[in-house]
Every structure is written in structure tokens, then in C-alpha cells.
Design a protein around this nucleic acid. Structure first.
Lengths: 208, 208, 208, 208
DNA sequence: CATGAATGAGGTTTCATTCAT
DNA sequence: GATGAATGAAACCTCATTCAT
């Protein structure tokens, strides 16, 4: 019953390789088709255009990770609304660390596609995909900062700084996936980075 | 007597605009020339090729900043060699903050070109320019970490983490120039970021 | 069922005309396409580049003639190795003359392409194609000269002269195809030239 | 008093090198000017256009040789008209051989320019310069053949063959200048070639 | 004499995309 | 589902030549 979809898969694999090597803009559909063993016409049967093909390669994993991340932060928001306290860094508690570990696992399972989306997408709608994640993370930090400032009224910070905190956190994950090859090395790295970031956080919000 | 160089400047301005809007690869020399009011031949009188034009727009400022940064770190290296202690973050002392402020001033003076080099250079030799800075900063962090670890033998860290610290610092400056429009807002931001980073640093190297 | 290949043939015909009139270097692909009634893109569907197009026009016939010529000389070499005597000029015997006549026939069948390869190929890998033929002919003359010198030990000649004999023979065929329009006039011409060349040969190797 | 003409000479030398290396068509005036240390404007002060520059490099020597050759054949024509017999090959008598030796000397004195005119002139009015010489030589052979045919009425030949004889003789000199580097090797070569050609000639006109 | 600037036309090549079959 | 042919626009670049200064 299972439709073959062989050609489509060949195309996606070939595209993955080409995007990975040359980036979206320099990638050639001709080359992709040649390496997939089909002609350009075939490509246009399965995909609307070059963008659509890119989407097929990297779109799913990106949206997947994005959704998980949003759900995660949504959860926290609800908890705060319900009056439950929460900890400054999403990752400090065991529970949070487990959630994080799962995201990391997902990222490494599809590492090549994640890298394509993060570093080879210039020219596509994903070229600023990191900003999607940052915006979501920012809400989290905003929330946390408000809590902290309620407790320490003398501390003040501004939106630019909060946004940077979010940026910094996301960038750490991007650094991880781009610079650390093996998943087993990633978790220790993240742990140390979280230690650093938490110390930084308290250095700002619990001065002296 | 003043040499005009009108056409050359027109071309550079037009190129700056085009690179800024479309990035290096999608930028069209035809368009640049048209907007500069000259023919393509004229462009090739002043510039060897598209790369050379890009260099004329963004090369100087990048090399300028890079040189200042290297000189700065070289200076610190020398101080350490002479046995003079130095502070964990290059920016904490007044003296260092002044040096930093001057770099920031330079960056904002040529902000558009800096942005082009940092974010619109895919396809040129500058496409990984941030890594140049990171490598330089890394040596600085390496040095500082060695000092810290001599004082606290129980602390241990690895090269990946040191590299990330450097990455993180450079990324902060890139964040600044890309996200903060006015120079007057930049310095306060950097000060707060430095506070954060120093707290993070001590959180790692002076635990408990 | 007959595959059309109309466009490809149009392109080749148009290219033949253009190369013929202007030579390889001055030939314009734009003009070739215009005269073929297609866009430049079409050309690049059928041919890799300008060189490939030239090859499609003149490559086959040149290699064809070259192969026949080599086979011919190979044959003679074998005969000498087997101890069979052979005559000073390949063309003197009836058998040889027939082989020559067939080569000539081939050349005139594709005369325009042969002329292109011989006289309009500057800038291509065929620009020294005559030398290919000369080198092959030279081996033949070398062989013959060795036989002659074994019989007449007092005669001596040098490599430069042998090479010139080969050059001269090939040049005679080039002269023929470039200066004599009709195949029917070619054979008598070659016959007379051969008479001349044989007399010259004996003048050198059988003095007095 | 002698005007320097330094720039002009620099340009000619530079052009000689460029034409020699790339041929007329691929030679770049920009490169020539750069290597001569002047700008393109200067070139156009001394030379009308690219063709004129080529003329300055190779024109004189070509016309010089051409004139000497014509004078030589003119002389012979006069002698025949005056009823003085003459020998089948212009080169056989000592007197003729001396004239030939002087032409060869001239050719080797300016060998690079001669080679440029003969082999690097495609695209200029000299691209068929060999034909000029051939046409002149042809008159000579025509004359000689008429004398021979008057003596041996049964011999008959046609214009095509006569033209080829001329072609062949000129081609021998071209072979010499292109293939033999040292003048001292040229004269022996020519002597042997003349022996060959004379034997060929008699083989045609004094059969049996 | 010579410069430096600029023209303008043309060069080859690449590309994503379309469509009749 | 897939092919093969073709489009058409645009890409970067090179060139001989001109001309005001």
C-alpha cells in the first residue's frame, strides 16, 4: 500500500546535500536533479519551486522544534499565572533539564537539516529563523524578569537587555549544534553554559 | 586641486545601498552602476571585480576594527608576560572601558559598512569574519582561564567552553551593532552585558 | 519514431556557418542562436560550452580522418615488422592509392567541417590539429628512411629533415582541401604531387 | 637632437611580447600599455588603433622581405626577357644561394617579428601574408614551367600544380623559421630541401 | 605627450521555470 | 509521473576606443 515516493525522497536527499554544501542561493536545481537521477520536470511535479523544496528539506524539523519550544514556554506561562513559582532558568530543575535534553536529542537526530535551516537558509523565509526562537524565549525572560523586579524593586533593566538575554540563550543552542559534533558532548556543554548564564542572571538581578 | 573621485564615490555609495538591501550575492552590478549613473565599464575601471568593490565598501573598517582589537589583546598578553596582574574581563577597568568605547565609536561611525561585513557578506572572504574576531578573543580567554585555574586548581574547563566564551563576547558586540541603533544606547547596554558576563565568569571560575 | 533533433541541427548548421565565416574566436554564440532561431539557453541545453559546440561541428570528422590515417600507418608498420618490403611512398601502389582516395573522399564529403578544423580553429584544442597528423606521418617517414639508409649507408639525413618531409606531405593534403574545390580535381592533383614527392625522395636517398 | 621615442619603443616592445604570446586577437591593449608603463591614451597618441600597432611591430620586416623577394624575381624575369637562360631552381647557382642566404639572415635577425607576422596575425591584414609571397613565387614558377614545356612539349601541367609548387617553396621557408631555432642550422636545412625540390621538379618536367 | 576617466557594445554562461508530450 | 526541450532574463566581465584636461 505504501506509495514509493522514491523519486521524491531521492530529490530531498540530493537537495539536502546540495543545500548543505552550497547554501540555498548557490544551490543549483539542475545539480540536485542530476544527482537524484531525474530531470527538472520531475522536480516541479513534486515541488512548487526552489523554496518549496527547501521547505521539504528543513521546514518540518524547524517547525517541530519551534512548536516544542513554544509549548514548553506556554506551560511555564500558565504555571506563573496559576501562582506557582518558577525558577530563573528554565533549565535548572531536573524536569526542565529533561525537556531540554529531549529538544537536544531531536536536534541531533536531524542535525544536518537543523544546520541547513540555521546556517544555509539565506535567501529563504527561514533566513532569520533564529529570531523566531528568540522572540519566544524573550517572552519567557520578560516574565522571569518581571518576577525578579517585583522582588527587588531597586533593580531595573530594559527591554533591549531582556531581548539580548533571549538572543544569548538561543545563540548558545545554535553554537552547540554547529560546533559540537556528538550529542554526548552536547549535554555537558549545555550544563556548563547554563551554570554560566544563571550566574550572570543573578549577577544582574540579585546584585550584592 | 582636490581630486574629485566623484564617480568612484558614487559607485561605492550605490554599492553600499545595494549590498545592504540584497546582500553580496543578490546584489547586481548593473543596478549599482545604473543607480550611480555610470556604465558597467566605469565600475571596472575603479574596481577589479565584484569582490574588489565589496572590499572597497567594507574592507577597511573591518580590518581597522580587527587591528585595534588585536593590538588591544596583544597589549594584555604583554602585561601578563610582565607579571602584571590583569582583571578577568578586559572591560572592567576604566582604562579598558575607554578602549572599548573607542572601538564602539568606530563601529557606529561606519555602522552601515560594519553591518554589511557582518551580515551581508555571504559569498565573500568576509563571510566568516566574526570567526576572525572570535579566534583573537579566544586567546585572551585562554590566558585568563589559565590564570584562574592556577589560582583555583579544582576548577576545570575545556577548550570548547573557552571557545564559546569568546564566541559569546564577540556575539554580544555583533548583537549591539545590529540591534541598537544609537551609539548613546550602546555603551549602557555593553556595561550591563559586561556585568552579566563577569558574573557568569566568576560563577564558573570562583564557584561558591 | 525518428527523433527530430531539429533544434540541435539548426544550431550546428548555424554554428558551422558562423565558425566558417569568422573563425572560432570571433564567432558569436548570440549570432549563432539568433540565426538558428532559438535563445542562448537552448544552446546550453545541447552543448556544454562554446568549445563543445565547435567539437560537435568539427570534432567527429577530424577524429575520423585521424583514426583512418593512424590505422593506415599502423598497417604499414606491421608489414615492415613482418619483413615485407614496402615502397617509399605510401601512395604509389594501387592499393595505397585506393586508401588515399577514400580518405580524400571523406574529406570532401565533409569539406566545410574539415576546413573549419584546419583553418578556423584558433582558440580551440584543434588549433594545431595539423601537427597531430604530422606526428603520425613522421613515424612513417622515419621507418622508410631507416630502410633506405640501411640500403645506402652513405646517405645520411637528420630528424629535422624527416620531420619536414612529414610536414610537407600533410601540408599537401591541406593545400588540396583548401585550394581545390571539386573532388574530381583533387585526385589528379594528388597524383602529380606524389610523383613530385617521390622524385624528391629518391633525389635524397638514391643520389646519382 | 634625436627624439627619444622611448615611450613608443616601450610600447612596441611590450606589444611584441604580447602578440607573440597570445596572438593578435587575444592580445590586450590594456596589458600592453600596463607592461609598457603607460596608459591607454598614450598608445593612441602613437598609433591609430590596434591594427596600426601590429603594423608597427611586424609590418616593416614583412614588407622588407617581400620587397627583396619581388626584386629578386623581377630580376630573373628581366633576364629571361633578355634571352638569358636561367636555372630551374632559383637557389641552385652560387649567386642565387647567396641571395637566399641574405634573406634568411634578415629573417633570423628579426625572427620574433617574422614569426608574429606569419603565425600570430589572425585578425589582421597580414593573416594571409604567406599568400603574398606565394603569388610572387608563383610567377617565377610559371615562367620556369613555360621554359621547360617549350623544351619538352609532351610535358603538361596545370595552374593548380604550379601554384602548389610556389606554395610549397614558401612553406619550406616558413617551416624553417618556425622550426629551426638557430640560423646556422637553417642554411644546411634549406640546402637539403632544395635538393629535394629540384629532384621533384625534374621528376615532373624531365620524366624518364 | 600623456593621463585618467568613461563609454557602450558585446562576450559567454547560468539559472529557475514552463510545458507539450 | 516524468521527460526533454526551450525560454528569457540576468549574471559578471572585457574590450578597443575616445576625449577633456
Amino acid at each position: 500500500m505504501e506509495k514509493d515516493k522514491e523519486t521524491r525522497n531521492h530529490l530531498i536527499q540530493s537537495a539536502r546535500k546540495e543545500f548543505s554544501e552550497k547554501g540555498y542561493m548557490k544551490a543549483s536545481l539542475r545539480t540536485i536533479c542530476k544527482n537524484a537521477g531525474v530531470t527538472t520536470g520531475a522536480l516541479y511535479f513534486f515541488f512548487k519551486d526552489k523554496d518549496d523544496l527547501f521547505d521539504a528539506v528543513a521546514g518540518d524539523i524547524i517547525h517541530g522544534i519551534y512548536d516544542v519550544m513554544q509549548a514548553h514556554f506556554q506551560d511555564e506561562k500558565r504555571m506563573v499565572a496559576e501562582g506557582k513559582g518558577f525558577t530563573p532558568s528554565a533549565e535548572e530543575s531536573t524536569e526542565h533539564m529533561e525537556a531540554t535534553a529531549q529538544v537536544i536529542h531531536q536536534m541531533y537526530l536531524h542535525r544536518e537539516d537543523v544546520l541547513i535551516a540555521l546556517t544555509k537558509s539565506q535567501g529563504t523565509k527561514y533566513e532569520n529563523v533564529a529570531d523566531w526562537f528568540i522572540e519566544t524565549a524573550e517572552k519567557h525572560y520578560r516574565l522571569m524578569a518581571d518576577v525578579m523586579m517585583k522582588q527587588n524593586p531597586e533593580v531595573k533593566t530594559d527591554d533591549k537587555f531582556i531581548h539580548w538575554l533571549a538572543h544569548q540563550q538561543i545563540d548558545t543552542f545554535i553554537y552547540m549544534i554547529t560546533h559540537i559534533d556528538k550529542e554526548k558532548d552536547a549535554l555537558p556543554f549545555i550544563r556548563q553554559a547554563v551554570t554560566y548564564m544563571m550566574a550572570g542572571w543573578y549577577g544582574i538581578f540579585l546584585p550584592r
